[in-house]
Simulated assay, not measured.
Amino acid sequence: MKNTLFRSAAAMAVVIPSLLMAGHSQAEDLSAAEAFYDGNTINWIVPYSPGGGYDEYSRLIIPYFEKYTGASVRLQNNPGAGGMRGANDIYRAPKDGLTVGIVNGSALVTNQLAGIEGAVYQFEKYGFLGRVVADQRVLAVSTRGDFETIEEMVESNSTFKVGATGLGGSTYVDALVAGELFDLNQDIIHGFDSSSVIRQAMLRRDIVGMWGSYGSAIQDVEDGMQKIVLQSGQERTAAIPDAPTVLELAERMNLGADKMAVLRAWQGLNDVGRPVVTPPGVAADRLTFLQRAFEQALNDPEFVAKAENAGRDLSFVNGERMAEIATDAAVMPEAAKAFFIEAVSGGI
């Protein structure tokens, strides 16, 4: 099967566990929930600034979420602390089912493992509507910089700077893990408000590159401003044929067992991707109604076409499966767990 970043609507119908197509039965009578949401207002929190991938995904989804909930949806950008501020706001919101949000799942899991100050949530206790996408993570460098390949970065004797958002955010964790696995001579400059601000620093040549999702990097790559030199996953995607995978690089460098355990845990965290969640404790009928509406929205043919036209990857899973993925990500070999705890807490 051809390996592509984007899954068509037809392909998704085969691989997605679906409440609609799998005949998922619900004991709850959803008529009361449907009446509750009809004409009501849902607050949709994005834990990053406008213009980034989380914001763009949300703006694509919201019209269809409105279509299937019957509610109006108000988008609210709550950036800060590498996405934790917005995640905390969702977690602490009223449990009436009128607050949802898209979050950086892998970063939230690692922050929780490390006990990062300010992480008031327990990730597994969110209500999960489902996952939008499991990010294809990439290391992109500025075409105005000094590097054209990951090999040049590995072999560099001079220290170079890599940008990241808040301590514990995915851009930070990816950079830190890659640096430790592949012995990169790098300084991670964290604290940028968003990925778009990091890209501006790359244009100024203040930093050489950054980790992020392929969807967030693609426009700058197409514009000739960035080049992808490394990608997550076990196989190169068709969209990025010239950049090796982290597994390729690991095998080439003959990493030991401990580092390979960390690499596999890193990959598992990436599978958590970008879920849409509610606060814990939302009534079962309302959560089920929102899960159903979210699944209908993500499978709407018009939405799928718009996502494809926007170059936005989709790898949807439903709320039940997303909860399982989140739990699995937190279970890792002790050596890998200890590494992530030390890394995210700033010990590395």
Rank of each mutant, 00 (worst) to 15 (best):
R131N: 10
F128Y: 15
M260D: 00
T288R: 14
D146G: 04
E117I: 12
F339Q: 06
F294D: 03
A310E: 12
V100Q: 04
A217H: 14
R312Q: 12
V103C: 00
F147V: 06
L290C: 03
Y54M: 12
R204F: 12
V246R: 11
A107R: 04
L129T: 00
R321W: 13
I150E: 05
M202Q: 09
K67G: 03
L255G: 05
P17L: 12
D328W: 13
R274C: 12
A265P: 07
Y91Q: 00
M153W: 00
H190P: 07
F316H: 13
A343I: 06
T143P: 06
Y48G: 09
G273I: 04
Q291D: 05
F303R: 01
L167Q: 09
V133D: 10
F160C: 08
P275H: 09
E248K: 08
I348P: 02
A140C: 07
A305Q: 13
N78K: 12
P94R: 05
E180Y: 13
T41V: 15
K2N: 11
G191I: 02
K125E: 14
L167N: 01
I348W: 14
A293R: 02
A22Q: 14
T237N: 10
R144Q: 14
T143Y: 08
L75F: 01
D38C: 04
V317G: 00
L184V: 06
G118R: 01
F6A: 08
G191F: 07
L113M: 15
Q186T: 11
D220P: 01
I341L: 00
F160G: 03
R144G: 00
L75P: 04
F182P: 02
D206Q: 13
I218P: 01
A164H: 07
A201M: 01
T288C: 11
T99I: 06
L75N: 00
N157M: 12
G83I: 05
V120R: 15
